[in-house]
Amino acid sequence: METILVVDDDKEIRELAQIYLKNEGYNVLQARDGDEGLRLLQKNIVDLIVLDIMMPNVDGINMCIKVREYSDIPIIMLSAKTQDMDKIFGLTTGADDYMTKPFNPLELVARIKSQLRRYLKMSNKEAKNESEIEVGGVKINKATHKVTVANKDVKLTPREFSILALLAENSGIVMSPEHIYETIWKEDSFQSENTVMVHIRKIREKIEENPRKPRYIKTVWGVGYKVDKDS
């Protein structure tokens, strides 16, 4: 089930979008401004963002710019403005599509489906070898639970493997220790940071040439961990 993040300071628009998207089987997250939207992105795996331009605090343009620093997930901009320059500006900051308010919710759903199909195809998520993940010199086979680094086999525990695969599948996205714990352990993340940190350290000892200067699993201080796309 894909997750759609709807970021808009208008509660009625957020809830209208949620109704139509949930009817299509999507999971929906809501944010009132770009700041809240960015926080949700740190804690959740999101497949597409519906993003209003005019908002208090962090507006849609600035949120889009920040997201594009580490992710290429589809972004559909919303704006009450109809001038061509606003549309051009939104698209040049990294948005994939643009809709003006008021909009037909059914058209929004159709555009979301179109963007997701294109994104999934471009990111090879529909490819036959979807069980294989490769980041730099690390190859991960989810079907066989085999990991190789520079063509040499590496032995990981099941949980170590699951953490590495989760980060590699979402390369470029920073994941909080809480999100990693809840995803892998399937439990609430109360006081889970040390547990995740220990597992990350053990993975680094096995896959990194120099665990003190990791090439693959990077720490984003105060936020979490990520695997860089171009490791």
Rank of each mutant, 00 (worst) to 15 (best):
E2P: 02
V7H: 01
V7K: 01
D8V: 14
D10R: 04
K11C: 15
E12L: 13
E12R: 14
R14G: 08
L16E: 05
A17Q: 01
I19D: 05
Y20W: 15
E24G: 03
G25L: 03
N27I: 05
L29W: 00
L29P: 08
L29N: 02
R32P: 00
D33N: 11
D35G: 09
R39I: 02
L41R: 10
I45D: 10
V46G: 12
V46A: 08
D47M: 01
D52R: 04
M55N: 02
M55Y: 09
P56D: 02
N57H: 15
N57Q: 12
N57T: 07
D59V: 04
D59P: 08
M63L: 13
C64L: 08
C64G: 13
I65W: 08
K66L: 07
K66C: 01
E69G: 07
E69I: 01
Y70W: 06
P74M: 05
I75H: 04
I75W: 03
M77R: 01
L78K: 13
S79P: 03
T82F: 10
D84W: 06
D86M: 00
L91T: 07
L91W: 06
A95V: 01
A95L: 02
A95N: 05
D97W: 00
Y98L: 03
T100Y: 03
K101S: 15
F103C: 14
P105R: 07
A110R: 09
Q115L: 05
R117F: 01
K121P: 00
S123E: 08
S123R: 04
K125C: 01
N129F: 09
S131K: 12
E132M: 12
I133Q: 15
V135M: 09
G137L: 08
I140G: 09
I140E: 07
N141G: 11
H145C: 13
K146H: 10
V147I: 15
K152M: 11
K155T: 14
E160L: 00
E160S: 12
E160Y: 14
L164C: 14
L166E: 11
A168L: 13
E169V: 01
E169H: 07
S171Q: 13
G172K: 11
V174E: 05
S176H: 03
E178W: 09
E178Q: 07
H179N: 08
E187A: 11
E187V: 02
D188W: 14
F190Q: 10
M197W: 04
H199D: 08
K202R: 09
E205Y: 09
E208A: 02
E208I: 02
R212K: 06
K213I: 13
P214R: 11
P214N: 03
V220A: 06
G224E: 11
Y225M: 02
V227M: 15
V227Y: 01
